[in-house]
Amino acid sequence: MTQEPFGQFGRTVAAGVLLAALLGLMVWTGASPVTPLESDVPNEVDVTSDREAYVGERVALGGFVVDTDPVVLATWASGDGQFTLVDADAHVQNSDEPLETGDHVTAYGTLEDESTLVVERATIQQPSETRYMVLVSLLGGLWVAGRFVRGWRFDFERFAFVPRDRARSRDEAESTDRERSDADRAANARARDEPASVTQDGRSRSSGGERRA
């Protein structure tokens, strides 16, 4: 039997560390801009809370279009945190169509005043792209989960996932050992119940020791 280097305690600690890392990455991703054009410039989280401090600077604002004449961007899902985008339609990089209400946009440019952004470039995240990403992720997750369930099972004795083939082989070996043990016990019981034994010359001797012809 192969000795596991860390045992059950090591597996538990590793699972806890991985789970904490996963939750930390989820929180970090949710707190960062959705599609930042520039990683080293202030984003909508910084600018919306202190607009005056960023007037005249280059910033990247992400949010939803709530009006198109002129184009107005809301950085909060509730519709608050609005900025007017100047020349936004002319600087969209991944679409030839004008912006529409509900489009998710990230715009980079200079904050002209506390509510106006002069756009230098912008990108649109289409709803179909989000649906495609979610669908592909869901199908990929289900496929991986199915392969895992078919190939592995949880061993409560070892408190670990083990390959199903290995577990099946171990169960078959244990079953064979039990059958062999039962057969040995039955053979010993029959041997104890037999009244006579056989001598070296092949003739039968009775239990009383008399020799028969």
Results as ranks from 00 to 15, higher is better:
180 R>Y: 02
206 S>Y: 09
15 A>S: 12
126 Q>T: 02
208 G>M: 02
54 Y>P: 03
10 G>W: 04
184 D>Y: 05
187 A>D: 11
43 N>C: 11
130 T>A: 06
162 V>F: 04
89 D>M: 08
209 G>I: 06
129 E>G: 08
148 F>S: 07
176 T>A: 15
26 M>E: 10
183 A>N: 11
111 L>C: 07
183 A>Y: 06
121 R>M: 10
104 H>I: 04
48 T>N: 13
2 T>S: 06
207 S>Q: 10
60 A>W: 03
79 G>H: 05
127 P>T: 01
5 P>T: 00
93 Q>Y: 02
22 L>F: 12
152 W>A: 08
101 T>D: 07
79 G>N: 06
138 L>V: 10
208 G>L: 09
146 G>T: 11
9 F>E: 12
94 N>L: 06
53 A>P: 01
21 A>Y: 03
130 T>N: 03
5 P>Q: 00
81 G>A: 06
117 L>S: 08
7 G>M: 03
151 G>N: 14
53 A>H: 09
154 F>H: 12
137 S>H: 07
33 P>L: 11
56 G>D: 07
98 P>Y: 14
10 G>N: 03
189 A>T: 13
89 D>T: 03
153 R>C: 12
131 R>M: 05
148 F>A: 13
133 M>P: 00
143 W>N: 00
51 R>D: 05
128 S>N: 02
104 H>S: 13
139 L>A: 15
195 P>E: 06
123 T>G: 06
59 V>Y: 05
193 D>F: 00
165 D>K: 06
35 T>P: 00
61 L>T: 05
79 G>V: 07
148 F>Y: 13
7 G>K: 02
160 A>H: 02
17 V>D: 05
62 G>Q: 03
16 G>N: 12
104 H>E: 10
30 G>D: 08
170 R>L: 15
78 S>P: 01
180 R>H: 08
27 V>I: 12
210 E>W: 05
177 D>E: 15
142 L>S: 05
106 T>D: 12
143 W>R: 02
186 A>V: 03
138 L>K: 01
72 V>D: 04
86 V>L: 14
189 A>R: 15
132 Y>E: 13
195 P>Y: 02
90 A>V: 00
147 R>T: 07
6 F>I: 03
120 E>Q: 14
140 G>V: 01
150 R>H: 08
57 E>N: 09
47 V>Y: 11
12 T>A: 14
134 V>L: 15
40 D>W: 04
43 N>E: 04
29 T>Q: 15
96 D>S: 15
169 S>D: 13
30 G>F: 10
187 A>N: 03
92 V>Y: 11
181 S>I: 01
17 V>K: 08
192 R>N: 09
166 R>C: 01
157 E>F: 10
44 E>I: 02
9 F>D: 11
159 F>L: 13
81 G>C: 07
175 S>T: 12
120 E>A: 14
150 R>V: 11
68 T>R: 13
186 A>L: 12
82 Q>T: 15
137 S>V: 00
83 F>D: 05
196 A>N: 10
196 A>F: 15
113 D>H: 05
190 R>C: 00
144 V>S: 09
131 R>F: 10
54 Y>T: 03
185 R>I: 04
19 L>R: 12
14 A>H: 08
94 N>F: 09
160 A>P: 00
135 L>K: 00
51 R>A: 07
